[in-house]
Design a protein around this nucleic acid. Structure first.
Length: 195
DNA sequence: GGTAGGATAAGCT
DNA sequence: GCTTATCCTACCA
């Protein structure tokens, strides 16, 4: 993290969600939660494309306090709690009042590995950030970050200089509806993906 | 190598 | 009451 990596601007997120999910791959997720810097490269994402997407939290429901951040401006962090114990981080996309976002599913750990291990327990490096709830635990991301800006908040996404990686597209994971939609994006061959 | 089951709580019906 | 965009452990091969 030596050179000046600029944050991805709000305009980056104000595009079709699947496109944002694909283009997020390879960039840096940086957390300064509790004054500890942890950094990982995004290697796996999923798109949740709007109210017509049966797997999206906004599907067939009204806007609720829990999902409010999902309707925020592009570049907002939508962090939700699930299964009674896990946090998951999303980047809100498209436009204000339109509920769509990209779930960050896995990172290649780059910086602050000792901090990550302290938070995660002494797991193998491969398992540190391979999964949406695992990466949140490793980076200290909780509901406190819900609704904050990924452009200028405590948790940010910074642009890498290198060119776009080769991307594989598959179905999404862990959902029960809209299962077959090809909206999961992975850096081809990355050993850091969740599976 | 693989998978089944349990933990645990908010939000919805 | 039931479901859930998950993870870990135990157990089996």
């Amino acid at each position: 993290m030596r050179p000046p990596f600029p944050p991805l601007a709000a305009a980056f997120y104000a595009r079709p969600t699947a496109e944002v999910a694909r283009r997020l791959l390879g960039h840096f997720l940086v957390s300064d939660v509790a004054g500890r810097r942890t950094v990982g490269r995004i290697v796996e994402t999923e798109a949740y494309v709007g109210p017509h997407d049966p797997a999206c939290h906004a599907f067939g429901r009204r806007r609720t306090p829990r999902t409010e951040a999902l309707y925020g401006p592009p570049g907002t962090a939508y962090v939700y709690f699930t299964y009674g114990m896990h946090w998951c981080l999303n980047a809100v996309t498209e436009r204000l009042d339109y509920p769509a976002a990209v779930l960050i599913r896995a990172l290649e750990p780059l910086e602050g590995l000792a901090v990550m291990r302290r938070r995660r327990g002494n797991v193998a490096e491969r398992g540190l950030c391979a999964g949406p709830a695992r990466l949140c635990e490793a980076l200290g991301i909780t509901g406190d970050e819900n609704g904050t800006s990924l452009v200028r908040g405590t948790v940010r996404i910074l642009r890498d200089r290198t060119r776009g990686p080769l991307v594989a597209v598959t179905s999404r994971i862990g959902i029960t509806r809209g299962v077959s939609w090809p909206l999961r994006f992975v850096i081809q061959g990355s050993p850091w993906a969740s599976r």
